[in-house]
Design a protein around this nucleic acid. Sequence first.
DNA 1: CTCAGTGCAAAGTCTTTGCACGATT
DNA 2: AATCGTGCAAAGACTTTGCACTGAG
Lengths: 153, 153
Amino acid sequence: MIDPAAAADEQLSRYMAERGLKHTRQRSLIVQTFVRAGGHSSVDEILATVKRQDARVSVATVYRTMKLLADCGVATALDFGDGQVRYEPAAGRHHHDHLVCTSCGRIVEFENDRIEALQQTVAKRHGFQVSSHRMELYGTCRDCLASGRAPPS
Amino acid sequence: MIDPAAAADEQLSRYMAERGLKHTRQRSLIVQTFVRAGGHSSVDEILATVKRQDARVSVATVYRTMKLLADCGVATALDFGDGQVRYEPAAGRHHHDHLVCTSCGRIVEFENDRIEALQQTVAKRHGFQVSSHRMELYGTCRDCLASGRAPPS
DNA sequence: CTCAGTGCAAAGTCTTTGCACGATT
DNA sequence: AATCGTGCAAAGACTTTGCACTGAG
């Protein structure tokens, strides 16, 4: 089990077997495509890649499958405010947040325990019990800064 | 100038005067409605309130006006991931982030300089120059915890 | 053989836009 | 009077859904 795509497929299989869902060719193809993409994929992107192997797969199936993956813990839904949902593999990964380059779209992940701790403190101060959060830092990445690509002001 | 709604209207007037835009009845009505709502309003909510005073105002005008307000610094656009843009008054306000109750929808604002500082540190470590960020903590508010409203698991 | 899954196209949201009419400067 | 703004409805982008057919178990 060295291949993460195969691992995800396995995890999905177990989840489905447990509740009488079916392991179809399309689902298998979508999971593997998604995992191999490495992260932050939109449904459109996944569909485009999937179609190279099977042109008859429909958007609807990708939407339905990604939702399924989110439910069974294989994928996490992201929203970078660009009007479409994105997904990243979740399997065995620690929580993290994102740096988003507004020039080239590059996405870098980071985690910072001190920020997380402070968030808990803030929440407690207001009587909230936090169940999740989202944090994205938008700006210009190293490469875009270096190449002088102007930050869209 | 004690009334913030009037103040915002003024600010908008100046902005418009500077660039030959027109100060219409609709715009005035929308700004005041928006400011009086106090914050985190969706276009739909603003429209509903506006229509009580003038039923003939259209959605399009509210969308256009809110965009104008965002451009002139009177409003800030928010995205809580619920599929619609929200706006809050920006005039003279310091940056802040949000706690969102997933049970009752309540929104509490907070600011925390230490978190902001840590964000800068993280960004720098990755070579990013941050221009903006968003951070929302989702969970259950004090009241919902007290009244036993189950956090939607 | 049965029931879940799929493809397709229609429908649903939220938001934007084209256009002729109306209102402000 | 000259333009900008407005209302309306159509169009767009993304996502969901109804339905008949297909295919996995």
